[in-house]
Design a protein around this nucleic acid. Structure first.
Lengths: 236, 236
DNA sequence: TTGGGACTTTGACGCAGCGCAAACTCGATT
DNA sequence: AATCGAGTTTGCGCTGCGTCAAAGTCCCAA
């Protein structure tokens, strides 16, 4: 569904579009289509021909990889203002993962071949997206290191802190992760099972570190959670 | 130590330099210094200012990340012809990992600021390195998925197969991984301990899948190893 | 208001694989 | 030839956490 009007103010502040002239922004946005996508619906799907790349304007998107035998791994969550589906930037013709809306979302979509056009015409756009790819590479390596060296409780704590930093909203009880997230989702981010995540959250709730409910997690004491995430064996 | 002469034939065939005119190759190589680096010595080190980027001409290099508490993770092995230390390409000013020579190596080194010069002047050079970054991102995600969904024996099997594909040398006994690699090294690639790797290799040797010795692994039956790497529980 | 389904909790059990420890093997060095 | 140290093997006990199973609990839709 196409929104009525697209204005350059939608993208002017975003890091990927920094330093691009207003008229150029108008041009870029003139090529985009905006879409509303309902919760749980895909923006794009793994293996699919990469016909477009996207900018998330509003909402939260979960990027998921599915293995040959059907297991799902959550690669990352996308926040408003981030690009996604930029397979073309790294020479892919097909999406390496699926992107699923965690809530109702609004995205801008450009046909795939515009990526190289934009990168050529506006070097800062290219540079910025490459920087994005670079930091995702860093993130992935951090993930590998965590999986190799940390216990499950530390990984879950790290995952919660990352989500809090990325999408946390201050409430009177603490910092709320601002979209519905299930135990299963957290398990898929950390390489464990929903059962273990549930046990951990229960025990942390007893200790007053977090408050959690159905598809909802609030971190009450980020600092103590961080100690747990980093800390070696100091059992309380 | 500087080699006596640098010739464009050193780099002409490599994917990063594909489609670049001979005179341009001469120019590029004119800016490079070649270095011999001894086994176990670093090409560059984590956290260090990224003053240069490198091309491996000969040898094998292990890329390692060290955690705050001193644990080491092997990120990947670099083979001849690959670029490394391209932090500049993704907007970093400091190396995110260390690169250690697994054997005596020969590398070309360019001062860091040449990276953007080259990328600007020779678009295919930039595109090719971005593609490299992209495929490393893919690799990292694959690693995360393996760590999340596979048992240790499958991960070790996958790691061996990857090494065999990348650097395998045919011998009469099977395919030999062409540089000294210890149980500890394999453990650091797969997130386990040298003890477990040792046990696995012993049991695989009994079954005739591999032959291994001190810092040396030969895969005798790649196909059966692959079955083990992919396969669900079929215990023999 | 009443299902019904999705999500969560909790218990019981088992085992893969880690930590610890000790012995062994091989290659290099003198 | 003897020595030394790095790399490897192997046994044993323990435990983190996955698996299986069964109850809750909450939200939504009719």
């Amino acid at each position: 569904m196409q929104l009525s009007r697209l204005d350059r103010s939608l993208i002017a502040g975003l890091s990927a579009f920094q330093g691009i002239a207003p008229t150029d922004l108008d041009f870029m946005i003139g090529q985009a289509r905006s879409l509303r996508i309902a919760k749980d619906q895909p923006v794009f799907e793994q293996e699919q021909e990469a016909h477009a790349f996207f900018l998330l304007l509003d909402g939260h998107v979960r990027v998921v990889k599915t293995t040959a035998d059907g297991q799902e791994i959550t690669v990352r969550y996308i926040s408003p203002g981030e690009l996604m589906g930029i397979a073309h930037a790294i020479g892919l013709t097909t999406y390496p993962a699926s992107a699923i809306c965690a809530v109702d979302c609004v995205v801008l979509a450009w046909p795939g071949h515009f990526w190289s056009k934009f990168a050529d015409a506006f070097p800062s756009f290219g540079a910025s997206t490459y920087k994005t790819v670079g930091s995702r590479l860093q993130d992935a390596h951090t993930r590998v290191i965590e999986m190799s060296t940390e216990q499950v409780d530390q990984r879950v704590a790290h995952a919660l802190l990352k989500l809090v930093k990325q999408t946390g909203r201050k409430t009177e009880e603490g910092i709320l992760i601002d979209f519905p997230i299930s135990r299963q989702d957290i398990a898929e981010m950390t390489g464990t099972t929903l059962h273990t995540v549930s046990r951990l959250l229960s025990s942390w709730e007893e200790k007053g570190l977090v408050k959690s409910g159905r598809q909802k997690v609030t971190v009450v004491e980020p600092h103590r959670l961080l100690v747990l995430a980093e800390g070696r064996t100091d059992k309380n």
